[in-house]
Simulated scan of single mutants.
Amino acid sequence: MNPLESDQLRDELRQDAALQHLMARMPPKIQTSFSEEQLSYLKLALVDRKWGNHSVDWRGTLKFIHYRYYFVLLLGRNRRELSRGEHQIGLFLQTALLAIFLIFSVLMGLLALYLAKSAAGIDLIPGFSLGIWDWFKS
């Protein structure tokens, strides 16, 4: 590669928006010290961010009195290695959600059985009613 092509490549890399954003945070002495090869690898590292792809990427701002606040909701598959604490929290949340789902399912099943019993006219405890059947009928 001749020196003219090398200078053109360096100029093209320096005009890249992602690299300009990165370079703006560096002192000028450091900015000028990068070779074309280093700049091209920096650009490759910035462009090839695998953590930037999310199933749900919802961002917005809210104005409250005199201030503006931003929020970001990101959802997607976790590809990171979890620490021991994160793994334990994940297991706890998974167990809690499973327990909530099972309790909800059992309660809905019991409600369905109660409504079926009431619809069939079966009275297990004479003179006692939860009032669910009367509410459901009306």
Results as ranks from 00 to 15, higher is better:
Leu82Thr: 04
Arg84Met: 05
Glu86Asp: 03
Phe104Lys: 02
Leu93Ser: 10
Ala99Phe: 08
Arg77Leu: 15
Leu97Arg: 06
Leu73Lys: 09
Leu74His: 06
Val106Lys: 01
Leu75Phe: 13
Phe71Cys: 05
Phe71Leu: 13
Glu81Ser: 11
Leu73Arg: 14
Gln94Lys: 14
Ala99Asn: 12
Arg79Pro: 13
Gly90His: 04
Ser83Phe: 00
Phe92Ser: 15
Ala96Asn: 12
Asn78Asp: 09
Leu102Lys: 08
Leu93Gln: 07
Leu102Glu: 06
Ser83Glu: 00
Leu98Lys: 10
Ala99Asp: 09
Phe104Glu: 05
Gly76His: 04
Leu73Ser: 11
Gln94Ile: 09
Glu81Leu: 12
Ile100Ala: 12
Phe71His: 14
Phe101Asn: 03
Leu75Thr: 11
Phe92Thr: 14
Gln94Ala: 09
Ser83Gly: 02
Thr95Met: 13
Phe101Tyr: 07
Ile100Asn: 09
Arg77Ser: 15
Ile103Met: 01
Phe104Ser: 02
Leu97Glu: 11
Val72Tyr: 13
Ser83Trp: 00
Phe104Asp: 02
Ile100Pro: 00
Val72Gly: 10
Leu82Glu: 03
Glu86His: 00
Gly76Phe: 02
Glu81Gln: 06
Ala96Phe: 10
Arg77His: 15
Leu93Cys: 12
Gly85His: 02
Ala96Gln: 07
Leu93Trp: 04
Ala99Arg: 06
Thr95His: 14
Val72Pro: 09
Gln94Cys: 08
Leu98Gly: 11
Gly85Leu: 03
Gly90Arg: 05
Val106Glu: 04
Leu98Met: 14
Gly76Glu: 02
His87Met: 12
Gln88Ala: 13
Leu97Ala: 09
Leu82Ser: 06
Val72Leu: 12
Leu73Val: 14
Leu107Trp: 03
Arg80Gly: 10
Ile100Leu: 07
Ile89Phe: 00
Ala96Trp: 08
Phe71Trp: 14
Asn78Met: 09
Phe71Ile: 11
Gly85Glu: 07
Glu86Pro: 00
Arg84Cys: 01
Gln88Val: 07
Val72Asn: 13
Gly90Cys: 07
Leu98Thr: 13
Leu97Pro: 02
Ile103Thr: 04
Thr95Ser: 11
Leu97Gln: 10
Ala99His: 09
Thr95Ala: 13
Gly90Lys: 04
Asn78Phe: 09
Leu74Met: 07
Arg80Ala: 14
Leu91Thr: 07
